[in-house]
Design a protein around this nucleic acid. Structure first.
Lengths: 136, 136
DNA sequence: CTGACTGCAAAAGGTTTGCAAAAAG
DNA sequence: CTTTTTGCAAACCTTTTGCAGTCAG
C-alpha cells in the first residue's frame, strides 16, 4: 500500500506537510525532528517544529516511520519502507552503524516463545563499544 | 571489588550523597533521577537534583550502575551488581518486564564476530507488544 | 460545510552549567 | 591545604499544549 492510503485508511488527511516530512526522512535516512525541520524548511516556508512532532506521531502510528534513541538527546526517525535494520551506537566515540536485523532472529523467536512478546525490531538500538574503541 | 574502591580507583571521592544514591538504586531496582531524589531526600535533607545527575554520571562511569530508556521520558537507572537482565516495554500498555540476558547470547556473539562490536547488554531495552496487547 | 490540521506562543518536562561555599583526602 | 564535590539558581534543549485560523475531503 502506498503512503497516502496508509494515512487515509485510519482517517488521517493528506497534507503537504506530511508528505514533505516523509520525504525528508527517506532522504536523510536517520534524522532528528530538528534535522527534519531543516530539510522541510528548504521546500516550504513557515513550517513549525510542533507540526513536525505531531506529524511524526501520526506517521509512526500508521506504520510509515519508526524512531530509536541513538544518543541521549533527540531520537532519530527512519522510514519503514526500507529493509529493517538495527543500530549500533558506540558509547565512547558516539559513532553509529547499521546492521541487518537478521542478527536478532534467535532473540525475537525466543521472546515470542517464552513470553509471547512481539519485539519491534525496527526500534532496536544497541549501545556498546565499537571495534576501534574496544581495542583501547 | 566493593563500591567505594571502584570510585577511589578512578580518583573519585566517597561522599554520603554517592552512597545514598547507590543505595536508593539498589532498593528501587529501576528508578528515574526524580525517583532517586525522592528516596534520598528521605534520608538526607537538602540534596539537589543536579547532584543526582552528576552522581549518576559518575556511578555509571565507574561501572556501578547503568541506565536504559524505558519510556519516552526520563531514563531509568539500575544497579550492575545484580544479575544482568534486559527490559521488555510494551508500546501499547506501557508495561515493563525483565528477562534474563541469556536470550541475547547469540546476538552478542554475532555482533562480536561480525563487527567486533561489544554490546552493553545491561543497557538493552526492547520495545514491542506484550502478550496481552498482541492478542488484540 | 465540518472536522482535521497547522502555526504560533507559551508552558512543561528533563538536563546541564556557573559559581561560591563546603567537604574529602 | 588542595582539589573535588555540592547546593542553588539560572540557562538550555526538547517536547507538549491551547487556541484560533486554515485547509482537506
Amino acid at each position: 500500500m502506498n503512503w497516502d492510503n496508509k494515512l487515509r485508511q485510519l482517517g488521517y488527511r493528506i497534507t503537504p506537510q506530511r508528505q514533505l516530512v516523509l520525504e525528508a526522512i527517506e532522504e536523510l535516512k536517520h534524522a532528528t525532528p530538528e534535522q527534519i525541520l531543516g530539510a522541510v524548511s528548504k521546500k516550504m516556508t513557515g513550517i513549525n517544529l510542533s507540526t513536525i512532532y505531531r506529524t511524526l506521531e501520526v506517521l509512526e502510528k500508521v506504520g510509515l516511520v519508526s524512531h530509536s534513541h541513538i544518543g541521549h538527546g533527540a531520537p532519530t526517525y527512519h522510514s519503514l519502507e526500507e529493509e529493517t535494520h538495527i543500530h549500533l551506537v558506540c558509547s565512547e566515540c558516539e559513532s553509529v552503524q547499521s546492521i541487518s536485523a537478521d542478527i536478532m532472529e534467535y532473540t525475537v523467536r525466543a521472546l515470542r516463545a517464552d513470553r509471547a512478546f512481539e519485539v519491534d525490531v525496527s526500534h532496536v538500538t544497541f549501545h556498546g563499544l565499537c571495534d576501534k574503541c574496544s581495542k583501547k
